[in-house]
Design a protein around this nucleic acid. Structure first.
Lengths: 485, 485, 485
DNA sequence: ATCGTTCTAGAATATTCGATG
DNA sequence: CCATCGAATATTCTAGAACGA
């Protein structure tokens, strides 16, 4: 009886019991040797068991056998007497065989672990499953609620978006209307301006300069007034006879000049003009430069206006509002022309009056031409130019704080006017005296003129800077801020 | 021993066994009578059991006892050895008591255990669990569907929002462009107006002025009015006497004509005109068809401009920045100034004329310049300055920083105006006469003029301040109302 | 006979019984070997059964047979009586065949309850349920995640919408401001235009008119130019010398006044004006209250228009584009009128001048009103009317489609101008001749006038029709396009 | 912590009884 | 009465479980 290894005591004991020849009468191997027999249960229990175990109960012994996997071998009793029923008890185990004790190691005691697997697991699982199912259920309700909430939210979102869409549409409508409105305004202005163009008046008398009021447009032409009479008429006739293309070119030039003038400095512009003008024009220019040039200058804007539609479009499309102005300007330019013509009429009137009383000479002295770009050769016209430039009206239009000194710069351009003025003066006043006057006025007024110009530019600067700043850049900030809000 | 009732055979047999005095040496009641003892297990099994049962196994007997709820009474051995081990076996059951066989009915054999309970319970649970799991599953699918729908909705919402964002951006662009456009317009107007201010003039010659009416257009032509006849006056009179309704009708006709002219070709228009025009017109038309046609052509451009609206609109709507009208208005203000100045000139003229009759001509003739900034030393120029400066309107219209002296000007100019005028006039003009004139004009015109000025200023103020104010600080109320709409 | 396997004892016992040759006389195989016979029921039960079973009841034996699926083979007695009743009893089972003991394994004892099923089903179900529950669980987590994501998305959407709302509101603000701005501009224009309407002159009589330039402010003051000297020159000097700051202040005052005027009612304004006006003004005011009041009244509309901004805004925002046009038109029309009036004035001047040379004084006296609607009976006034109407300028300003006959008008007006001028200028012309002239002009100019009117109306028509059309009925296509962009 | 002992239970079968057609 | 079956019980074998070592 050697119990080495890990073979349970029971097995070794059992092996010993079965093997032990002394006990063969109570317990022994079966004939095949693959099972063992307990011949007399009662005696075995009371006599043998106690020697090996702590009990004398056959039941306990059997329990152990069962515990180790031993199984009872059923006997098919031939069913004789009941006495015989007490036949031997036989147990067997695959690894419990006669002469093969080494197999005992394979005999394992049953562990009461099957329960957890089957039953308990089931029960536990059931419980767990139930719990989990219920939790799932409750959570599902939760999810359901959230889903419903989300759905409601989404509906609200749709409403919001619908609302926004409507608002957007309204805004779009508004903007559209605004645009239409503006377009209409611009158009109306444009048309109005264009339409006007009435050469107010006339002057006449065979003396003095004659004003030709024109309005130029894109491919515009110059409209001259043909007069059959001596005075302005003649001039007009001349003009009319001239080739419209020339005028156009001139206009274009002027246009560019003007533009450059606006953005650039005056000198440059002047140069451009002089260089650009062809001899013809130049000559004419020289001849009647006063009126023509002035007219052209006035028209400059209109020239722009003619280009407007396209430019405006482009500019607008290019987000450049720059052109848009032009368009606007055009209308205004034309209007300006109109007003200009009115002014001319007034001048004519003045001249008329003056002439009446004193041969109109004064006029020129006092109505210096106002084109800063133009170069006048005609004496009289120059005078007028002077007057115009000195025209205080312009000051108003500046709308800016006129820079006091900037004017001097302009002066240079104005100075020539001086020269021209002197000879121009006819009338009772001696040229010299007139010259003096002019000079005087020149000195004192040039600044104004220049200032005027300056002012203009200033104004523009303001416009392009300040105004723009306020209207466009401020907004940007606002937008930015707004967006950030 | 009759076992009728529902008491199992085992119990009755057991009861019999225990009661049977013959077997008392092997099995009997305990002393207390609430349990029974098997004194000699082995003998009892082999001798008694077979008599009552179909076996002789103590185990089977015990199994039955257990099956009926009998329990073994454990003997607390007084520490003595195992001697007691072979002691009697004692079993008890609440309803198995000596002398009380009636209680046997209460002893119930254990049914194949908890199956019914457990099983049924489990089954029910299982069913429930299964059902709930399935419901959960189906609902989960439901939720899944809804989730997917929501997700889709959300995606749609995102699309919507993206769309709205884009639209908003477009609008923003539009608005920006509008603003830019307006700003530009305003700026341009400003510039233009500033530029203008041309010194009304004076021309003169004692002859009659001649009116030249022209209309310029793109491919413009010049329309001159040639009058070979005596005077227009007569005609005018007639017109005046005509019924306004007629005018209206005529206007309508013209309107349509015009419209057709715009959209159609000139010929068509002309036809329309000719058909529409009464004989009178027609005749005239024929007479001066040359000019007429040209005039129509002149209108072409305007026709284009009319088409513009659409184009412009389109372009604008096509992301082309929009443009705005506002500017226009500004321009108008300034324009008003200008016109005002013209009026002044006219008044001056009038005065001149009057003066002529009373010798104040010069002033007017020579006062073309009225820049308040300029300081003229020349007496004549000064006069003009006065007039102009006295016209504060212009200053306002500039939209610029008003000249510092404004107040003084007002003060001085206000009351003094009267005084100044009267005494001021030196020259040949008699103070008195002038005073009279002034008074007169003052009475009748001042108010109008002043009102004009006021309005102008209002306008301007609005433009430069209010505008900004409105643009940037407009009361939310309106918006609120809008939003609610 | 030991029997391990899983074959029930009953089957092995039965097989043994049937096979056992010793018992063949009581129990044996059928001839075919696929069933067994119990020849002598009673003897079999009493002699054989007890040897193998714990009973001697044929019933129990049969019960067992049935329990294992054995079926009694019914003998179709050939009609013989019940003699056969004591005949052999035959039982068969598909797997109980002679010589094929291996089939016994297939014979299964009927299990009482469905418990085993239940149990097994339970297990399977449990497994399935567990799996499904777990899947549900995991999917729930999935759903949960998606829900959370959706919620987050929705929150983002809300943010987006909130953002869009804000942006929209900002845009609305912008647009509103723009509209306000534009409205203000238009109104100002309007006002200006309305205001203008100054009867350019004429007054006078043989005296010289006196110009008083004033600026009104809230508590306005009139700024007159005081000149200590005779002519204006002196005054100007004064003005010029004044401090610019003062001007500015004055402007500011005016601004405020204007504002209050706008928001308040006219009376208030008037009061303010009157109160504000210094005695000087007041006196003057009283003197020429008629004109003043009229002037003020003229402003009334402007005042109303001033209130418009809000109304206009509202209307515009309320999709009424109608108003906007009107404003627009008004401005232009009025401007036209104004220009018209200027032209008239000019013409008057001209006439005056001419008159001077030929007694044209009348004109001025009679040309105060030039409303085209007015019907003048005075011949001279008519003349003026003619002139005004004939004024092509106005045509321009309409910004409308030029009336078809415009040319004619021009022609006529042009020609008359000439005519009128000539004779007029001559001055020697008698009134009659003038009348003649007028008539003539009338004929030729009426059209012009009408055209003018037409234009105006056209303009208006455009405004009320076209503009409206454009504003309200512009093809949605554009928008659509935009939206698609 | 495995094993051993004991009591009890589970399970399958067995036996019996009664129900059913 | 019989064949079958359901059901309860009975018998047997094995397992579960508590407890102790």
């Amino acid at each position: 009886m050697k119990h080495n290894s890990n073979v349970p005591a029971f097995l070794t004991k059992l092996w010993t019991l079965v093997e032990d020849a002394d006990t063969n009468e109570l317990i022994c191997w079966s004939q095949e040797g693959n099972s063992f027999l307990v011949l007399d249960e009662q005696r075995f229990a009371k006599e043998i068991l106690p020697k090996f175990f702590k009990h004398n109960n056959m039941a306990s012994f059997i329990r152990q056998l069962n515990m180790y996997g031993f199984r009872k071998v059923m006997h098919i009793d031939t069913g004789f007497v009941k006495q015989e029923r007490d036949g031997p008890v036989e147990f067997q185990h695959p690894y419990f065989k006669h002469g093969q004790d080494g197999l005992l190691e394979n005999i394992k005691r049953k562990v009461s672990n099957t329960r957890p697997e089957d039953n308990k697991i089931r029960h536990e699982d059931l419980t767990k499953i139930l719990a989990s199912v219920q939790s799932v259920h409750s959570q599902q309700e939760n999810i359901d609620t959230r889903l419903a909430a989300l759905k409601r939210e989404n509906e609200a979102l749709w409403m919001e978006i619908s609302d926004l869409r409507q608002k957007h549409a309204h805004q779009q409508q508004l903007i559209k209307k605004l645009i239409h409105f503006i377009v209409k305004l611009v158009q109306n202005n444009h048309i109005l301006n264009i339409k006007r163009k009435r050469p107010v008046l006339v002057n006449s008398s065979g003396k003095k300069p004659k004003y030709i009021h024109q309005i130029y447009d894109d491919k515009s032409c110059v409209t001259n007034v043909k007069g059959s009479e001596v005075s302005n008429d003649i001039i007009i006739c001349d003009v009319t006879e001239k080739n419209p293309e020339d005028y156009f070119l001139l206009i274009i030039k002027n246009f560019h000049t003007v533009r450059s003038t606006y953005s650039g400095d005056i000198k440059q512009t002047e140069d451009a003009v002089s260089t650009a003008a062809d001899d013809n024009l130049r000559s004419r220019h020289l001849d009647s430069s006063d009126t023509t040039s002035s007219a052209l200058q006035l028209n400059k804007p209109s020239g722009l206006s003619l280009e407007d539609p396209v430019k405006l479009m482009d500019s607008i499309l290019k987000e450049n509002g720059a052109i848009s102005q032009n368009i606007n300007l055009l209308g205004k330019l034309e209007l300006m022309d109109y007003l200009d013509s009115i002014d001319c009429s007034l001048e004519d009137f003045q001249a008329m009056l003056c002439g009446k009383q004193s041969d109109v000479e004064f006029d020129f002295l006092e109505c210096p031409s106002r084109s800063m770009i133009l170069k006048h050769k005609g004496t009289k016209s120059k005078k007028q130019l002077i007057q115009y430039t000195s025209c205080p009206l312009l000051a108003f239009l500046d709308g800016c704080s006129p820079p006091p000194d900037a004017n001097l710069v302009n002066n240079s351009s104005a100075s020539p006017s001086n020269t021209s003025v002197h000879p121009t003066s006819s009338s009772d006043m001696s040229l010299e005296s007139e010259a003096v006057l002019l000079d005087t006025s020149l000195e004192s007024m040039q600044p104004a003129r220049s200032s005027l110009i300056l002012l203009d530019q200033l104004t523009e600067a303001e416009a392009s800077e300040q105004t723009l700043f306020y209207l466009c850049e401020l907004p940007e900030d606002n937008f930015t801020q707004l967006d950030k809000v």
